[in-house]
């Protein structure tokens, strides 16, 4: 546990959001410091993906209150692409398919846009090819995925690996991975987790949205949060994940209620 020594990368306070006239996020507080790993767990429909996409700037969600500072900057005031360039990364739970656009072309444009924005030289297609192949080796990805259309016809696991490849290319300061482990077999899980660990440093942070303890065996979290009904209702250490796995989520709701009652 890196004991809250890194500087604050993400500070979310009282964040609320609505979609289709319904409040989905009902006041989220979360502080993530450099060097930390956080896990967010919680039942389906509790708002984990919504929280992730609101931070990334998805236009369908309306932020109705609260704030989110990224390295001191008002994240919510930035366009989605500016958030990416600032070093925020979202690994999608369901990456979309983009027929007709070669993965290599997409990855290179993303790389040049995000890294170029940080003053790094742009890579031409040949240079990029060498570079991306190295990264793919790390994730044991077949280079054939470069020539295919973005995510088109990829299996669930292949899509997730492609997300981590993008993370490896963009080297974000904060990566929020939404159920990247779902649908991975045990080998793929090990590889993906290895990829994430490889990218960790004292300067960046990772937030893992997951249903499963098994991912947390590979990427050990400093904090585990439980989300329910659009709120973080419980926060603990890595043991909390084990407890959730053993006991399910029902007792958390109980505990949250009694905690709220005690506070009142």
């Amino acid at each position: 546990m890196s004991a809250s020594v890194g500087k604050v990368l993400l500070a979310v306070k009282g964040l609320t959001a609505a979609v289709g006239g319904r409040n989905v996020l009902k006041g989220i507080d979360l502080t993530v410091r450099a060097g930390e790993v956080h896990a967010i767990m919680g039942p389906n429909g509790s708002g984990k993906s919504t929280f992730s996409k609101v931070l990334a700037g998805h236009p369908v969600y309306e932020v109705t209150g609260g704030e989110a500072l990224f390295d001191g900057v008002d994240l919510l005031a930035l366009t989605p692409e500016a958030r990416a360039r600032a070093g925020f990364f979202l690994g999608f739970q369901y990456p979309v398919e983009v027929p007709g656009v070669a993965n290599a072309q997409f990855l290179r444009l993303a790389y040049n846009t995000v890294r170029g924005g940080r003053g790094k030289d742009e890579l031409d297609p040949l240079e990029f090819d060498d570079f991306v192949r190295e990264k793919m080796k790390l994730l044991e990805m077949d280079p054939a995925f470069l020539d295919r259309s973005v995510n088109e016809g990829f299996s669930g696991g292949e899509k997730k690996r492609n997300e981590i490849l993008q993370m490896a290319l963009l080297e974000p300061r904060l990566a929020l991975l939404d159920e990247t482990d779902s649908g991975l077999d045990i080998d793929a899980l090990r590889i993906v987790a290895g990829g994430v660990n490889h990218l960790r440093s004292a300067d960046n942070a990772v937030v893992l949205v997951t249903h499963y303890q098994r991912l947390l065996n590979y990427i050990v979290p400093d904090f585990v949060h439980v989300m329910d009904g659009g709120r973080i209702v419980l926060t603990g250490g890595k043991e909390l994940a084990l407890e959730l796995e053993a006991r399910g989520y029902d007792w958390v709701e109980e505990a949250a209620r009694s905690k709220a009652a005690r506070a009142a």
Binding site: A56, G57, H58, P59, V60, T79, P80, E81, R83, A84, R85, F89, L90, F92, P95, V96, V98, F106, L109, A110, T113, V114, G117, Q166, L170
Partner: peptide, 14 residues
Amino acid sequence: GEEQLFYFASRGIG
């Protein structure tokens, strides 16, 4: 669709 555009945007592409 919006989802495709958002996917690109989340990778820095306008």
